[in-house]
Design a protein around this nucleic acid. Structure first.
Lengths: 215, 215
DNA sequence: GGAGGCGGGACAGTATACAAATTCCGTCCC
DNA sequence: GGGACGGAATTTGTATACTGTCCCGCCTCC
């Protein structure tokens, strides 16, 4: 969508992720319109979008609230994401060409560079990680799968997860990417899927109990 | 949403399913507003909704078209639905109480009644079938899973599938429901999941090649 | 005669005013 | 004192007018 609509969306999502709009807060269109500097129309669009991405919950009487995340919610999102990304990488295994594998490797080398840097740049890590996963999704070549995964974005969760990672865990994550790339190069869907599920599961446990996940 | 918005949504979805709005047709807000007897605002909402449900595709320049379904698309939707409904029934297996199992049985007996009737009422079959699957989703008690599955609705596909079923296949489908109910009563997630995946897979093949699916 | 730019029309985006619905609070009656 | 009814205020839904952008065809210039 165009300017105002995007602006409202980004503004609101940012405020939800930052906790500025706390879970449980009611989202009032007029109020948000003022905050975003646009009219209610694009704000409505933005709220609808956030709703489909599960950032926002709607009551039966059409009032919107910032979604609240329980532990179960988080675990469930990781499980669902594991299933869907597992399927994606399975498809990718039988579709990837040499050029795409090479691009995956390049992205993953970028990840290593971030790890080898003296100061850990978590934002750079997140960006490269997102690139890796979305390239796999692209290779899987399934609009519908992409649409579903797009709605499980869970930026809040991924972001907090990466924050919870220490350098060793990030290195492990990098290694897992390397293995996934190898599985794709081999064209082995079973291997690729298993690795991906493990990769995502470990992220879950790192998220839940940072201290034990690397053990 | 409220009256006008729902009306537009139902009207448009109906016309897409019936083929009145053929795949590839451009959806022009103003034109549709006239058809639905409402203004552009609720039509826009409806188009957005249909877009998230993948009934409608949007170009980069924000023009909307009725989605076109290839064989691959159909197979893929069945696969994804199998994964997600398989997960749902797995969750349901460890959560269902006696009352819920009883309700599943009741719904399924309704299905049998439809089958035993002299004239096959496909609409009644579809309604009871939808009830069965949505009760399982309710038992699974996962908002996010429900949201994802809700967006894979594929009414067009399910509808055409049921049309392609003959009475024997419907009876087989009914039997599968009975078995799924039994698996839930036993609280056996593996069994339940396997049955559900098989159930959905068979529907796929009935859809693709009606004549051979019952073999 | 072809290619590139210019202009008009069609369509989506945004703002705003008005309508419907829901919630919340106060009052009145039991 | 509590509950229910009613109305006012708050919030969302809908209509409509206006604005901006994109597409397409035409015309000019090379």
């Amino acid at each position: 969508m165009s300017k105002a609509s995007d602006q409202a969306y980004l503004e609101l999502r940012g405020r939800i992720l930052s906790g500025d709009l706390a879970p449980g807060t009611q989202l009032k269109e007029e109020e948000l319109a003022v905050i975003c500097g646009v009219s209610r129309t694009p704000v409505r669009d933005a709220i609808r979008r956030l709703e489909t991405e599960l950032f926002v919950r709607r009551t039966d009487s059409q009032r919107s609230f910032v979604a609240e995340w329980t532990m179960e919610d988080i675990e469930e999102v990781f499980t669902l994401r594991g299933m869907l990304e597992g399927y994606a990488v399975r498809r990718a295994a039988t579709r990837a060409n040499k050029g795409q594998i090479a691009r995956l490797s390049t992205i993953n080398e970028g990840l290593r560079a971030v790890l080898d840097a003296p100061d850990l740049d978590v934002q750079a890590y997140l960006a490269a990680n997102a690139q890796f996963h979305s390239l796999i999704l692209e290779i899987a070549a399934s609009d519908r799968l992409a649409a579903l995964l797009g709605r499980l974005v869970m930026q809040p969760v991924v972001q907090q997860t990466a924050m919870a990672y220490d350098r060793e865990q990030l290195a492990r994550s990098h290694l897992e990417h390397t293995e996934i790339t190898a599985a794709l190069a081999q064209g082995d869907p079973d291997w690729a899927e298993a690795l991906m599920i493990a990769h995502i599961r470990r992220a879950l446990h790192a998220r839940l109990k940072p201290s034990e996940a690397g053990a």
